[in-house]
């Protein structure tokens, strides 16, 4: 069964994206595109500007420059809260579920911009099919769940927004290897179903496993880019990020 119904992918194109915090440049003029149905990864060390790039894309931090287009729509001036209406779902770093609300409420809030009707509940069931553990815990408070379950919930919540593009910020953070494996399975499944993915990770192996193209960031800039296969065999990437 297909878990993400009624979505058609569109091309995301980001150009000359820059972010400043005070006088410090965190991201300087980054370009990338995510073609429909494609999965793109951004890897780099802590502080390289990966999360800032995503937050700027989402409008959660002010951009000092840059344009963002999804399909034929210009999203450059769209506010963070409206991104979701244009089809961009976001899974924040560190999960950020709503801890004091039940699992089901968390998921339903993913559908905040639509009326909560029969259709919403059908979608809820689809999410439960993808993550059976969430169904078992639907009445539990999200804050009482383990890190891995919270990550599933955060992804589920983002899927409830009916995204055409799913943006994930470090979904492997703080998870045991087994759970990282589960996340990988989920992402691969979403990719198979034709959802576009933009994945920011420190875990280069996970990223190369999920994505077709990657960007390597260093000091707020693109240090390298290419297909994931190319990059995973690039001697420099192997040395620095894979340790081979």
């Amino acid at each position: 069964m297909k878990v993400i119904t009624g979505t058609t992918a569109e091309c995301l194109s980001v150009q000359e994206l820059s972010v400043h915090y005070g006088g410090v440049q965190a991201v300087s003029s980054i370009d990338f595109t995510v073609e429909p149905g494609q999965s793109v990864g951004i890897i780099g060390a802590n502080g390289a500007g990966k999360t800032s790039t995503l937050k700027a894309l989402m409008g959660l931090v002010p951009r000092s420059n840059g344009s963002i287009r999804l399909g034929d729509k210009d999203l450059t001036r769209v506010r963070a809260r409206d991104m979701v209406r244009h089809g961009i779902g976001y899974v924040p770093e560190g999960r950020h579920v709503f801890p004091g609300l039940t699992v089901e409420k968390n998921l339903l809030l993913g559908a905040y911009s639509r009326a909560w009707d029969k259709d919403t509940h059908r979608q809820l069931e689809e999410i439960y099919t993808l993550f059976p553990v969430l169904k078992d815990m639907r009445e539990r408070l999200a804050g009482a769940m383990s890190g891995g379950q919270q990550q599933m919930l955060a992804i589920g919540r983002a899927l409830m927004t009916r995204p055409r593009l799913l943006v994930l910020d470090e979904p492997s953070m703080g998870l045991s290897p087994k759970l990282v494996g589960n996340i990988l399975d989920v992402l691969l499944r979403l990719r198979e179903e034709g959802l576009s993915l933009l994945l920011v990770e420190q875990n280069a192996k996970l990223t190369f496993g999920v994505t077709s193209h990657c960007i390597v960031m260093e000091n707020g800039q693109v240090a390298m880019r290419g297909t994931s296969t190319q990059l995973s065999h690039d001697p420099r990437v192997r040395e620095v990020y894979l340790g081979l």
């Binding site: 959660l60 963070a80 809260r81 979701v84 924040p92 801890p99 004091g100 809030l109 905040y112």
Partner: peptide, 13 residues
């Protein structure tokens, strides 16, 4: 609980 996550699901904070 989390105004940034709330923004990301489309809530007008």
């Amino acid at each position: 609980m989390d105004h940034e996550a709330a923004t990301a699901v489309g809530i007008n904070v």
